[in-house]
Design a protein around this nucleic acid. Structure first.
Lengths: 255, 255
DNA sequence: CGACTGCCTTGACGCGTATCAAGCATCAGC
DNA sequence: GCTGATGCTTGATACGCGTCAAGGCAGTCG
């Protein structure tokens, strides 16, 4: 399941891949998840020039830090990231997890500086998209403009979903929702939706879900007891997808 | 302080004001908060044609409902709104409060249908901006494109702030943060930052902050005891702005 | 004017999650 | 294969906020 990323990790060595020939949206297998999604063939062709460089990061390295000047968006090609926000008073919270096809850096547009820290959860690779050029191209290519707006809008809607989770769900519902969402995202990427490896720690999951790591651990153990999942450290098998969904949205199951 | 909105409420009668002559960004006193913010004079001129109609809503009326087809964004001219999300399982949560100059409807872009309910908290007025025309114009006017992207990005960043609030703050910090934020927004609009009227109920505040209405009420009473604020029903006076900020971000006060 | 209704306040109590603490599993490095 | 570091699990206890309940305040309608 994770073979592709593992293979990619073998041919690294340099941190910046300036070989722009290799960077082409047209034959990227992520084009149905990433920027080109829903765009006409000809328009995608014109995208090729947009993606300037590819960049590799090792686990723990940061793609952007709060305060960095904003120049580029990044599309995740392989691997995964966590996005964190550090408040003035020293709090640090995970606000999201990004996987292949996801766009990173939208936080920087508003103020021309990044607000959010983005850190690789494993060895990863991204395509850098200079924002000035993206804006320019999206003035010419209506399909690109539309798609970019769609992506931003979905980001907003997605965050509202997290707000509901944080504002009104109990611990079990939060963890179940998290697992269901991960499952969906793996499926969308062609991986198994029922068996996967968590790339983040319990603490990171807890931070994202507004829970302490002990609570995350306890809830997962309980799900294991209930035969909803099988969990051993970071390895997850979802045994009862529907049961998990029922826990995630309890009122529905009564209807 | 609220005189302007009250005067506007008197000359209503019809629900749709099709008198496009009256609708002009150029001489709108909200242009420093709204879409035109940061745009060149000439570009703002070209905006005038964008704003199609004005629409008046009475308290409790909804501007958009989840499921409605997406056609327009709305800029709040006067009054205020709450944005709510209703989940499949019957939960209903307030995700934000919108006041003059704020842009509503960004949730609809991603799927061409609205996800969010928007309800007037008082008699209010909005400018409708047909989205197709906004996209078209922003392909021609780089300043408009830039500003629109800025607004969306800030929306994303703002929501991340709420995520931190919901994910890591205790009740007192949440309520204090909420009051400080309201105060800032009133100041930005030329109203008193230290004395204002809450247009939303305790339940709506609680829903937004992930608390029960009783908790909101108790915390506010405690702030009153502590002489941070004076609160009587919906009327708020902030007595000690710095003290309130210290409660909102406690770790900072120790530095 | 009086009664109704929606909203707010306050108290008593209990539950769910945080906190504190100890021990175990896994993996990298030597 | 041993050792230390990091992350996970599990238990005991504490506390913040939710829940339930009763009463008060303000605006509205008959």
């Amino acid at each position: 399941m994770l073979a592709t990323t593992e293979i990619q990790q073998q041919n690294d060595a340099c941190n910046f891949a300036k070989d722009t020939n290799a960077v082409r949206c047209t034959n990227c297998n992520l084009r149905e998840l990433c920027l080109p999604q829903g765009m006409a063939q000809d328009d995608v062709l014109r995208l090729n020039g947009l993606v300037a460089t590819r960049r590799r990061l090792k686990r723990g390295e940061s793609l952007q830090r709060a305060g960095d000047p904003f120049r580029s968006l990044y599309a995740v090609r392989s691997g995964s990231f966590k996005t964190c926000i550090a408040t003035e008073d020293g709090r640090d919270q995970v606000t999201g997890f990004k996987m292949s096809g996801d766009l990173i850096g939208l936080d920087g547009i508003g103020t021309n500086a990044h607000i959010i820290d983005v850190i690789a959860l494993e060895d990863s690779e991204v395509c850098a998209i200079p924002f000035a050029r993206l804006e320019e191209s999206s003035r010419e290519i209506a399909g690109l403009q539309k798609q970019f707006h769609r992506i931003m809008s979905r980001e907003i809607v997605g965050e509202q979903g997290v707000m509901v989770l944080l504002g009104s769900m109990r611990a079990e519902e939060r963890v179940a929702t998290f697992l269901v969402s991960l499952s969906r995202r793996f499926r969308a990427r062609g991986y198994s939706p029922t068996e996967f490896h968590l790339r983040m720690t319990r603490e990171e999951i807890g931070s994202y879900l507004g829970l302490k790591l002990e609570t995350v651990s306890r809830v997962m153990s309980r799900f294991d007891d209930m035969k909803l999942i099988q969990i051993k450290q970071k390895h997850v098998v979802i045994l009862d997808p529907q049961g998990l969904k029922d826990v995630a949205a309890p009122a529905t199951s009564g209807l």
